[in-house]
Design a protein around this nucleic acid. Structure first.
Length: 806
RNA sequence: GCCGGCGUGGCGGAAUGGCAGACGCGGCAGACUCAAAAUCUGUUUAUGGUGACAUAGUAUGGGUUCAAGUCCCAUCGCCGGCACCA
């Protein structure tokens, strides 16, 4: 072939052809087997596409393209998660409406994605800021509200001092805003909340029914933080009231030496009259209130606290009187805000006891040997055995837990209890650029949902979308929008002026792709029955406890409402690693190590970028960018291009390479399924090295190579396919099959070891019998066999090992 | 502190318990060229040897096995997540 490889030209050409031919549109043909591949839709930021984006997109593009060639009806959609703070901030700074900013950003992103040749079905493009889309986001919110899962609560929230907005717990990283890094403080506000805690069990148990990579499951389980234990009532001396605590170690009840309540515990107020050192306690409360959550955990090393003078608790199992302390290491937001302290078997209690010289009583010993609880707390449940504990003495920990809990229940002093770390989801944002919450507040009727026929409740135009220090949304200034009538009584009412968080639109978007233009329902039941659940969803680890958890919650809720057809939205979830700068650090403007994908496409072509990102290393690990590595992948594609010159008129596979071809088809097919793109590409590189060594390639060999490479580098392969005159379009061709028996060479070389060390290599038939192989091996190492042979090992296809004694 | 993951040439990384270093990058040597780039060929774990070859070698120390990068125990280091959740 005379022509040089010019990716600029051929990539444009094929992108146009695919678009004109609607090559990758997923028809609503519900008779064929379906495959739904999904990648997280991007937030169209002003910076444009990052080189991190193509990694997951290319990976699932490979799967999608392969599946189409295998005969599946494939849905591989793309859209825009376009509500959000950065757009709003940009709009404020540059005095452009967020809608315009979004439109421009989307245009740029779309152009960039199209230049990479993804097989997205652009007919199904969605945008969360489109009223026809958020109509249904609001509709789902109303369902949640009507089911009692959306409620308004006065509560301390995480307030970002820079974004001037409330954040969900998941959005606070080390006391700072996930997005802007500014300090987060506590602020009490009336907020819309979603009762995700009601779904804690379903969200944990559902994990057993899906194929997610292990670390995603573990993170979600830890985040939900389910623990089993008991609530126990401790009588207060000379009082009617009891102090209720939560513990996961009821078996250690005989080792309690003091109690601790949180500084916010209501008993301090309740018994203020009887507390002799009230001033001291008040001072401590004030001090604790001033600390942010971050400080409270930062200063965790040094425990603080004050003993309450005037209140004494009584251990309900042995009648021992014990003091009650106030300390901020006990959180009001978990359990009952009070604990029983067992310093011998809890590290935090141990530290506290050491500092304030409280007694430490051992009630569990180790089956492994003596332990000294004055040196450290003994917390190992697996090897523990109870001592000094009345009727549970001698039992193992699990057994003792059960026995004591039964006893507590029988005596009416305690009950089994399951607790979760998961908190309800703060769902309000005091911002303009989000979905309006479709609720009005009526003085007579309270919070009233607006009628479904009035959806979508569109965002009004405002003068200013500046956030306010008062913590009110910019919408609050729009009096003519805010003032409305109550759908219930017809009286005066006001609209909710907070908007939904960015996570709202992305919590159900995969459902909308299925039927994106439906104006009667979020998607038709028939289409959902066919397409759902998503077969393979890939996305970032950073969304594990955010988007992934939220969307599972919404989906499960919709399932319980009978709206969707399956309880779990995603059958399989994988996660990709980050792409780092050349110096191995995270890419950022300030570090000056940012690589712009446009530049790579311009200089090397989209196929090279795609190939490189798949070849860079193990898909789930982070990888540093290397410009030389990019060059190497371009070189590989050039070699494929030039291979066309070596194509002969022969058909079929040549004898010498038949095995190699079958092996490569098998390897590449399997590697594309198991995220091992790097070794799949390596196998194709090795194959073309063989072609060059042979100095020729048959028409059918070249054809197979083009098909195998097509999902990775779709443009160059389609172009070569056409110029070689193969039939039809490559994207419509069938995926090649391998024959298992042809992946094995007839005669192979195996190693001969003597005492485990390689001493020779022999060529024998692959299916050689044991005796035959060992005889050949012995002959090859005859000079080394000086001792008595004690063992002969033959692993067919691998090696012979002869073990001898001197 | 707890929970995950990882540790292999100069670099990115391959290896169902069965010949460690596939494939790529970089380096070195050569071909082509007036020259350079590009391209092509060879070579490239270390040590010794012209060489065939020998010895050592997958963070460290032990163990299981005919055979360990891979399995088990302990230690060190790195990365990620959670972090007073009783």
């Amino acid at each position: 072939m005379e022509r040089v490889y010019n990716p600029k030209e051929i990539e444009k050409k094929w992108q146009k052809i695919w678009e004109d031919e609607k090559a990758f549109a997923a028809p609503q043909d519900f008779t064929r087997p379906k495959y739904y591949a999904l990648v997280e839709f991007p937030y169209p930021s002003g910076q444009g596409l990052h080189v991190g984006h193509p990694r997951p997109y290319t990976a699932l593009d490979i799967v999608a393209r392969k599946r189409r060639m295998e005969g599946y009806n494939v849905l591989y959609p793309m859209g825009w998660d376009a509500f959000g703070l950065p757009t709003e901030n940009y709009a404020i700074k540059n005095h452009i409406h967020p809608r315009i900013v979004t439109k421009n950003n989307v245009k740029r992103f779309k152009g960039q994605l199209q230049a990479l040749g993804y097989s997205f079905d652009w007919d199904r493009e969605i945008n969360t800021t489109d009223p026809n889309y958020y109509h249904w986001t609001q509709w789902i919110f109303l369902k949640l509200f009507k089911a009692g899962l959306a409620y308004k609560a006065e509560m301390p929230i995480n307030w970002c001092t820079s974004c001037k907005v409330g954040l969900a717990n998941e959005e606070v990283i080390n006391g700072h805003c996930e997005r802007c890094g500014a300090e987060v403080v506590r602020r009490v506000k009336s907020q819309w909340m979603l009762k995700i805690t009601e779904y804690a069990d379903k969200l944990i148990d559902g994990l057993d029914t899906v194929d997610y990579i292990e670390r995603v499951k573990v993170s979600q389980k830890n985040w939900i933080g389910r623990s089993h234990g008991a609530e126990v009532d401790f009588p207060i001396k000379d009082k009617e009231e009891k102090l209720r605590i939560y513990t996961t170690r009821p078996d250690t009840l005989f080792g309690v030496t003091y109690m601790v309540i949180s500084p916010e515990h209501p008993y301090i107020e309740k018994f203020a009259g009887q507390i002799r050192n009230l001033d001291e306690i008040r001072a401590y409360q004030e001090q604790a209130a001033k600390k942010s959550d971050f400080e409270r955990s930062e200063l965790a090393k040094e425990k603080t606290g004050v003993m309450i003078d005037g209140l004494t608790a009584v251990n309900p199992v042995n009648g021992v009187e014990i003091p009650i302390w106030v300390s901020d290491y006990v959180l009001m937001s978990y359990g009952t805000g009070a604990i029983m302290a067992v310093p011998a078997h809890d590290e935090r209690d141990w530290e506290f006891a050491k500092k304030f010289h409280m007694p430490i009583i051992q009630v569990v010993e180790s089956s492994k040997g003596p332990v000294d609880v004055n040196e450290a707390a003994f917390t190992d449940v697996a090897t523990g055995r109870l001592v000094n504990s009345g009727f549970i003495t001698g039992m193992e920990v699990e057994e003792a837990k059960k026995a004591i809990t039964e006893y507590l229940e029988k005596e009416g002093i305690g009950t089994p209890k399951t607790n979760y770390k998961l908190r309800d989801w703060v769902f309000s944002r005091q911002r303009y650029w989000g979905e309006p919450i479709p609720i009005v507040k009526c003085e007579k009727c309270g919070y009233v949902p607006i009628p479904e026929e009035e959806l979508p409740l569109e965002l009004p135009e405002v003068e200013s979308y500046m956030p306010t220090d008062t913590g009110e949304s910019p919408l609050a200034a729009m009096r003519e929008w805010v003032e409305t009538t109550c759908p219930c009584c017809g009286g005066k009412a006001e609209r909710e002026t907070d908007t939904m968080p960015q996570w709202a639109g992305s919590s159900w978007y995969f459902i909308r792709y299925i039927d994106p233009n439906n104006d009667k329902e979020l998607a038709s039941r028939e289409a959902m029955e066919y397409w759902l659940p998503v077969d393979w969803y890939n996305g970032g680890m950073e969304h594990t406890t955010l988007h992934l958890l939220y969307s599972r919650f919404w989906h499960r809720f919709l399932y319980d409402q009978g709206i969707v057809n399956c309880p779990e939205p995603y059958k399989k979830r994988t996660s990709h690693g980050m792409i780092l700068g050349e110096n191995g650090e995270k890419m950022s403007k300030s570090r000056g190590n940012v690589v712009n994908p446009d530049d790579i496409v311009n200089e090397f072509g989209a196929d090279t970028l795609r190939t490189y990102e798949m070849f860079i290393g193990a898909f789930d690990l982070s990888a540093a960018w290397s410009q030389e590595g990019v060059r190497g992948c371009r070189r590989f594609l050039e070699r494929v291009w030039k291979l066309a010159d070596l194509v002969t008129e022969e058909s079929g596979y040549s004898k010498a390479l038949e095995t190699k071809l079958h092996q490569t088809i098998k390897k590449v097919s399997n590697d594309y399924e198991s995220l091992k793109y790097n070794t799949g590409i390596a196998a194709m590189m090795a194959l073309i090295n063989e072609f060059y060594r042979a100095g020729k390639v048959t028409r059918d060999e070249f054809k197979t190579l083009l098909i195998l490479l097509n999902p990775v580098a779709p443009h160059i392969t389609e172009e070569l396919w056409e110029s070689m005159g193969y039939e039809g379009r490559l994207y419509q061709t069938e995926w090649p099959k391998w024959e298992e028996e042809k992946t094995v060479e007839a005669v192979i070389e195996i190693a001969v070891q003597v005492n485990g060390k390689v001493r020779a290599a022999i060529r024998i038939p692959a299916d050689a019998a044991r005796e035959e192989a060992i005889a050949a091996a012995k002959e090859a190492v005859a000079d080394k066999l000086t001792g008595t042979v004690v063992k002969e090992i033959y692993v067919p296809g691998r090696l012979v090992n002869i073990v001898q004694k001197p």
